[in-house]
Amino acid sequence: MSKAPASVSKSGTRQVAPGAIDHSQELGHGNSPAAWTCVIVMLVGALIAAIAFVIASTPIFIGGAVVMVIGLILGYVMRKAGYGVEGSKLKNSGH
């Protein structure tokens, strides 16, 4: 990673050294139904796996891991269906 700082040109635009990361852009935080569904389902799976770990139950632990993978797939499918950030289902139609 380059230690070169970003500099501001005379026109006021920010120039970033090659290989440097530009932190001035807004990244967003994935606030969408797809992201929330993915995270909630994966948290439930993690809870199941954690409880199974404490009670030493391998089948339930694997079930929790499967629920986490299902959450990941569900989030991806919802994003492709238009429920992700700036998805087609979330655009304001003026109603």
Rank of each mutant, 00 (worst) to 15 (best):
43 L>P: 02
93 S>G: 12
37 T>C: 07
64 G>D: 01
68 M>N: 01
73 I>C: 12
27 L>F: 07
36 W>C: 08
74 L>V: 13
90 L>E: 13
16 V>G: 02
39 V>Y: 10
37 T>V: 12
26 E>S: 13
27 L>Q: 10
77 V>P: 03
81 A>D: 14
86 E>K: 13
82 G>T: 06
57 S>K: 07
9 S>M: 08
83 Y>E: 03
73 I>D: 09
83 Y>D: 05
16 V>D: 13
72 L>N: 07
59 P>G: 03
25 Q>N: 06
70 I>N: 00
4 A>C: 03
45 G>H: 01
21 I>F: 12
51 I>A: 14
89 K>V: 01
54 V>A: 12
43 L>F: 15
68 M>W: 02
11 S>N: 15
58 T>C: 01
1 M>D: 04
67 V>H: 01
41 V>C: 03
70 I>F: 10
86 E>P: 00
92 N>R: 15
79 R>W: 11
84 G>P: 06
72 L>G: 14
77 V>R: 15
53 F>R: 07
43 L>R: 04
41 V>G: 02
63 G>F: 15
13 T>V: 08
92 N>H: 12
32 S>V: 03
65 A>Q: 14
49 A>E: 03
31 N>M: 11
19 G>Y: 09
42 M>R: 14
84 G>I: 02
89 K>G: 01
65 A>M: 15
4 A>R: 10
55 I>Y: 09
31 N>L: 07
